[in-house]
Measured scan of single mutants.
Amino acid sequence: EINATPKGWSCHWDRDHRRYFYVNEQSGESQWEFPDGEEEEEES
């Protein structure tokens, strides 16, 4: 699962919740759901 993350994302293990979470390396935002690989940036 770690190697399957889309480009620009990293996968980390949360010991407290015993599950993986994903970090967007560009924005620093994290989420529980597996990233779909589409950038959802809304910068103007």
Rank of each mutant, 00 (worst) to 15 (best):
E1N: 06
E1W: 11
E1L: 10
E1K: 14
E1V: 03
I2E: 08
I2D: 12
I2S: 15
I2A: 03
I2V: 08
I2Y: 12
N3W: 15
N3C: 06
N3L: 07
N3R: 09
N3E: 15
N3Q: 14
N3S: 11
N3P: 13
A4T: 12
A4W: 12
A4E: 14
A4G: 13
T5Q: 05
T5F: 06
T5W: 08
T5C: 14
T5A: 05
T5L: 15
P6G: 02
K7H: 15
K7P: 13
K7Q: 10
K7G: 02
K7L: 06
K7F: 06
K7R: 10
K7E: 15
G8W: 01
G8E: 04
G8I: 03
G8L: 01
G8K: 04
G8R: 02
G8C: 04
G8T: 00
G8S: 02
G8Q: 02
W9Y: 03
W9E: 01
W9T: 03
W9N: 00
W9R: 00
W9S: 05
W9A: 02
W9I: 01
W9L: 01
W9C: 02
S10T: 06
S10G: 03
S10Y: 03
S10E: 05
S10A: 05
S10W: 00
C11R: 06
C11V: 07
C11K: 12
H12G: 05
H12W: 02
H12E: 11
H12M: 03
H12D: 02
H12Q: 04
H12A: 03
H12K: 08
H12Y: 07
W13C: 03
W13I: 00
W13K: 03
W13H: 03
W13A: 02
W13Y: 08
W13N: 02
W13G: 03
W13F: 10
W13S: 01
W13Q: 03
W13M: 03
W13P: 04
D14F: 01
D14S: 09
D14L: 00
D14H: 06
D14R: 00
D14N: 06
D14A: 03
D14G: 00
D14I: 01
D14E: 01
D14K: 00
R15V: 10
R15T: 09
R15Q: 15
R15H: 15
R15F: 08
R15E: 15
R15N: 11
R15C: 08
R15G: 12
D16Q: 10
D16Y: 06
D16H: 09
D16P: 00
D16T: 11
D16S: 07
D16V: 07
H17Q: 15
H17L: 13
H17V: 08
H17P: 00
H17R: 14
H17W: 03
H17D: 08
H17S: 12
H17T: 12
H17M: 07
H17N: 06
R18V: 04
R18C: 08
R18E: 15
R18S: 10
R18H: 10
R18M: 09
R18D: 01
R19H: 03
R19W: 00
R19T: 02
R19G: 03
R19A: 10
R19Y: 00
R19C: 08
R19D: 02
R19V: 03
Y20L: 06
Y20M: 08
Y20G: 02
Y20K: 06
Y20Q: 06
Y20W: 14
Y20A: 06
Y20V: 08
Y20S: 05
F21W: 06
F21L: 11
F21E: 09
F21A: 08
F21Y: 00
F21K: 11
F21H: 05
F21M: 11
F21P: 06
Y22R: 03
Y22M: 03
Y22A: 02
Y22T: 04
Y22P: 00
V23W: 04
V23M: 05
V23S: 05
V23E: 07
V23K: 14
V23Q: 08
V23P: 01
N24R: 05
N24K: 07
N24Y: 00
N24Q: 04
N24F: 01
N24M: 00
N24A: 02
N24S: 06
E25N: 05
E25L: 09
E25G: 06
E25A: 08
E25P: 04
E25C: 05
E25R: 08
E25M: 07
E25V: 08
E25H: 07
Q26A: 13
Q26T: 10
Q26H: 07
Q26N: 08
Q26K: 15
Q26W: 06
Q26R: 10
Q26I: 04
Q26F: 12
Q26C: 15
Q26G: 08
S27E: 04
S27C: 01
S27D: 03
S27G: 04
S27I: 00
S27F: 00
G28W: 00
G28T: 01
G28V: 00
G28F: 00
G28A: 02
G28Q: 05
G28M: 02
G28E: 01
E29M: 11
E29D: 05
E29H: 12
E29S: 12
E29T: 07
E29P: 00
S30Q: 15
S30W: 13
S30F: 11
S30P: 08
S30K: 15
S30E: 11
Q31L: 05
Q31E: 01
Q31T: 09
Q31M: 04
Q31S: 06
Q31I: 03
W32H: 09
W32G: 06
W32P: 07
W32V: 10
W32C: 06
W32M: 07
W32A: 07
W32F: 14
W32I: 13
E33S: 08
E33C: 05
E33F: 03
E33K: 07
E33R: 07
E33P: 02
E33I: 06
E33V: 04
E33D: 07
E33A: 11
F34D: 07
F34W: 09
F34C: 12
F34V: 11
F34L: 13
F34N: 02
F34H: 12
F34R: 14
F34M: 11
P35M: 01
P35W: 01
P35S: 01
P35Y: 00
P35N: 01
P35R: 01
P35C: 01
D36W: 07
D36C: 10
D36L: 08
D36H: 10
D36Q: 11
D36K: 10
D36T: 09
D36F: 07
D36M: 10
G37M: 07
G37A: 12
G37H: 12
G37L: 09
G37E: 10
G37T: 12
G37S: 10
G37N: 02
G37D: 07
G37R: 07
E38R: 12
E38Y: 06
E38W: 06
E38V: 13
E38L: 11
E38D: 11
E38A: 13
E38S: 14
E38T: 12
E38H: 08
E38K: 12
E38I: 12
E38F: 07
E39R: 11
E39N: 14
E39I: 10
E39T: 15
E39L: 14
E39V: 13
E39A: 14
E39P: 14
E39G: 11
E39S: 11
E39Q: 14
E40R: 12
E40W: 10
E40C: 14
E40Q: 12
E40V: 14
E40G: 13
E40F: 09
E40T: 15
E40K: 13
E40Y: 15
E40I: 14
E41K: 11
E41F: 10
E41G: 14
E41P: 13
E41N: 10
E41V: 14
E41R: 13
E41S: 09
E41A: 13
E42Y: 09
E42W: 06
E42L: 10
E42A: 14
E42C: 12
E42F: 05
E42T: 13
E42D: 14
E43R: 11
E43T: 13
E43A: 14
E43F: 15
E43W: 08
E43N: 10
E43Q: 04
S44F: 02
S44P: 10
S44T: 10
S44D: 11
S44H: 12
S44Q: 15
